[in-house]
């Protein structure tokens, strides 16, 4: 999953990185195929090259290895909202068929059954980056028919929604789970199964998805992680 997500990051891309799986993927990417990728963390670290995985978004290893450290007001205004970021790399608690994200509450907002951490930087990352890559584990609790709360907008209600709302970023381009890769249909913007990871069937993905999943005409099998990719990932985890 981390390797599949890492492959989505192209060399030279300026990437706003969320903590957790997105950060793992971004740190595999620059060590492998994307040596010129620029990693930006919302703690104000620009161009970080951490020698281990950061334990949090404000880990000292991010500021020590950064090209520049700026304040949090600046990172969100001058760098993110001004449109300088190519890719936003986000996690999620729940996602729907248009890749809208909930990280706020399960249940009613005023009397939630589960109170999640909340928005953090995600709403404006989702709105303002050129494109957005989302990583989360696949289950019916996570891939749901309807979100209880839209924390960060994906493709809204489908084609044309983002444009109508005046959002400048193109929105989610891929969702990477532990089972598969989903991409928005070019016309409807509905998430469509385009690739299953080795050993996973299309039915496995359908069973773990809370809506009637659209499947591409030709579903690929995600290439197996190379030994180099696995070595990088294991070394990173061992160092952390």
């Amino acid at each position: 999953m981390a390797v599949a997500a890492a492959r989505e990051l192209t060399d030279g891309a300026v990437c706003f990185v969320g903590i957790g799986l997105p950060s793992t993927a971004a740190n595999v990417a620059w060590r492998m195929h994307a040596p010129s990728a620029v990693l930006i963390y919302e703690s104000g670290c620009i161009g970080s090259r951490p020698d281990r995985l950061p334990a949090s978004i404000g880990d000292g290893v991010l500021s020590e290895s950064a090209v520049a450290n700026v304040g949090v007001v600046e990172i969100f205004s001058y760098w993110l909202q001004a449109g300088r970021i190519d890719v936003g790399f986000l996690g999620a608690a729940q996602i729907d068929r248009f890749a809208n994200i909930n990280t706020t509450v399960i249940g009613a907002y005023d009397r939630p059954s589960v109170r999640l951490p909340g928005a953090g930087g995600a709403p404006e990352i989702a709105a303002n980056c050129g494109e957005v890559i989302i990583t989360l584990r696949h289950s019916r609790r996570a891939f749901v028919e309807e979100l209880d709360f839209v924390t960060s907008l994906g493709h809204g209600t489908g084609n044309g929604c983002r444009e109508q709302m005046g959002l400048r970023g193109r929105g989610p381009s891929a969702v990477i789970s532990d089972l598969c890769v989903l991409r928005p249909d070019p016309v409807t913007k509905e998430l469509t199964l385009t690739s299953v990871h080795p050993g996973v069937s299309i039915d496995d993905v359908r069973d773990a998805t809370g809506w009637d999943l659209q499947v591409a005409d030709e579903v690929e099998v995600t290439p197996v992680p190379s030994s180099d990719e696995l070595t990088v990932l294991r070394d990173l985890k061992a160092a952390s």
Binding site: V73, F76, S77, Q81, P123, S152, L167
Partner: peptide
Amino acid sequence: LAERWRAGAAGLPFGVLRGYVGTSL
């Protein structure tokens, strides 16, 4: 919140951002 802090520090009544559009917040 960062914009709210900036406005507070600047002695301005409000801050402006490209944010929250399309969310439940």
